[in-house]
């Protein structure tokens, strides 16, 4: 039943909500705006709002005179690689947990979740030393491994909550018809599970793209993704606000768009199905 609300009240609420929304969004808007200014306008006070000479020079400079393309590529490889590898390992496990639960399934699932609670800093030293000894420091492979492992519990959990909603009868029927286990998975389960898998993928790309503990601590120059590239702007000699803004805008735009499409999945994924 739709609630009936007086028009003045709705107008007032709309104004308040838009003001609050704009206020929260403002830093993002300001970053994008600054990316189109010259360096001089970027630091000028009073700040220029619209009346400045709009320029795309910063984007050109960041793309051509820095290693931006390399680091963007690193981010893509690391985020996609760790997500795909994670899905490969997690799909069979989530399938097993959802459709053939045993006595200990619940405990195993909760234990997996508990590994996510392990603070990264608690295992920083050993991971760093293992990586040093095996030549994995500052390599994409190393980061793909770390990000796969830290996001694996979330991937398993998200897939599990989606798979659990698929009716088990359909699988029974397929089994009766003599479908083997691999066939059951490929022809019956996967088509029904694709939306859940896609959502899981989206959320994990976002998480991996923005991850900033391991990416900062395990990379130097070659494998550094955008997080590390942009962190370099924090040094005093890197104080170019317009270029920082251009690099930031490019780094956050794809994820912001993905994030906007995955709001609902975000809630489910990050609360491990506790809030839907």
């Amino acid at each position: 039943m739709a609630r009936t609300v007086s028009a003045p009240r709705k107008t007032a609420m709309t104004i308040v909500a838009w003001l609050v929304g704009a206020l929260i969004f403002f830093p993002v808007f300001w970053t994008v705006l600054t990316s189109f200014k010259t360096e001089l306008e970027a630091i000028s006070t009073p700040p220029a709002l619209i009346d400045f000479a709009w320029t795309t020079e910063n984007y050109r400079v960041v793309n051509t005179r820095s290693n931006y393309p390399l680091h963007a590529m690193n981010s893509v490889v690391i985020a996609l690689g760790s997500t795909l590898l994670g899905l490969l390992i997690a799909i069979p496990a989530a399938w097993a947990f959802a459709f053939s639960p045993g006595r200990r399934t619940k405990d195993v699932l909760l234990w997996m979740l508990s590994t996510k609670m392990l603070p990264a800093v608690g295992v920083l030293v050993p991971i760093y030393l293992i990586f040093r000894d095996y030549g994995l420091l500052d390599t994409r492979t190393g980061l793909v491994i770390v990000l796969t492992m830290i996001n694996l519990p979330i991937i398993v959990w998200m897939l599990y909550t989606y798979f659990r909603e698929i009716p088990g009868d359909i699988l029974e029927a397929a089994r009766m018809d003599g479908a083997s286990l691999p066939k059951e998975v490929i022809y019956v389960l996967l088509p029904m599970a694709v939306p859940g898998i896609a959502s899981t993928m989206l959320l994990n790309i976002i998480l991996a793209w923005n991850e900033a503990f391991w990416t900062l601590n395990l990379t130097a120059a070659r494998a550094a993704p955008l997080t590390a590239f942009i962190a370099a702007y924090s040094s005093p000699e890197g104080l170019f606000w317009a270029k920082l803004s251009a690099a930031s805008t490019m780094a956050i735009a794809p994820i912001l768009i993905m994030g906007w499409f995955s709001q609902k999945q975000l809630v489910r994924g990050l609360t491990f199905g506790a809030v839907k």
């Binding site: 830093p27 956050i252 906007w260």
Partner: peptide
């Protein structure tokens, strides 16, 4: 409004920290 409100969550921590610090 909802899109505007949830946007900060998707901004990578390094970017939000530097934008706040400088801009």
């Amino acid at each position: 409004v909802r899109l505007m409100v949830i946007a900060p969550f998707f901004v990578m921590p390094v970017v939000s920290a530097l934008v706040w610090k400088n801009l």
